[in-house]
């Protein structure tokens, strides 16, 4: 896995070109184009309503009509039914976390089927998230917000997905949990996973990411590399309104 990772840093895991997406009549994405390469951690920044969540949902075929191109590992997915997309190696962690109330913590963890080899074992996951191990018999939604977020993330690590789409994973969580999530993302990066992160919390995302895309009105308006953060910080602040 490590050899493959270091040898193929330029391979596009996810390549979106001129994507338009709709919810019913509302036109949310207006020609979005982006690329995420093997082993990269890339963020989608932007204000609320800029289309960041829709971008992830569009990749998963969870919105209405879509026009454009979405290549996952080089495979065009625009006409693919939703349930086949995960099998290209994609793990999706929704903004609302999507923990199932009718399932225990462990059942939630075991729910997504393994889609390719290379996933973490349940033991590895419980080592990474000891809280989940302690509460494995609890109803999934009885966990605290932070634990639910850990579970939502842990769930897709088991499947062998090597492209993770993470939507606002730090939202509403205590600083200590946010720090823990940052450590987890560091570990996942070291494992060579490719991550597209929608994030509101720029201080969380900045030290982790290789690149940032700035989204406004459903299209990318700026691409910022990690080493440019200092020089472009005023521009970023203007866009994000922070």
């Amino acid at each position: 896995m490590n050899a493959a990772t270091s040898g193929a840093v330029t391979t596009a895991k996810l390549h979106i070109q001129n994507l338009h997406a709709y919810y019913g009549e509302s036109h949310i994405l207006h020609g979005l184009s982006l690329i995420v390469r093997q082993g990269e951690l890339v963020t989608l920044l932007g204000r609320n309503g800029a289309g960041r969540t829709t971008a992830l949902r569009a990749i998963m075929n969870m919105v209405g009509r879509r026009i454009g191109t979405i290549l996952i590992n080089g495979v065009e997915t625009l006409s693919m039914p939703a349930h086949r997309i995960a099998h290209l190696g994609v793990g999706y962690c929704p903004e609302e976390r999507g923990i199932f109330a009718s399932l225990t913590v462990e059942e939630n963890l075991l729910l997504p089927p393994a889609i390719q080899p290379g996933g973490m074992s349940v033991d590895e996951i419980y080592t990474m998230f000891p809280n989940l191990a302690e509460r494995r018999r609890s109803q999934g939604t009885r966990l605290s917000g932070g634990e639910q977020q850990m579970l939502a993330l842990a769930r897709i690590l088991r499947t062998g997905a090597d492209i993770l789409l993470l939507d606002e994973i730090t939202e509403g969580l205590a600083p200590v949990i946010v720090r823990r999530l940052a450590e987890v993302l560091e570990q996942l990066k070291r494992r060579g996973l490719t991550i597209l992160l929608v994030e509101q919390n720029f201080r969380f995302a900045a030290p982790l990411a290789d690149r940032h895309y700035l989204l406004e009105h459903g299209r990318i308006v700026e691409e910022v590399f990690a080493h440019e953060l200092d020089t472009k910080s005023s521009m970023l602040n203007a866009y994000l309104g922070v």
Binding site: M62, A86, G98, P113
Partner: peptide, 8 residues
Amino acid sequence: QLMKAFGI
């Protein structure tokens, strides 16, 4: 919908 996103 989330089940589909998990590949089921």
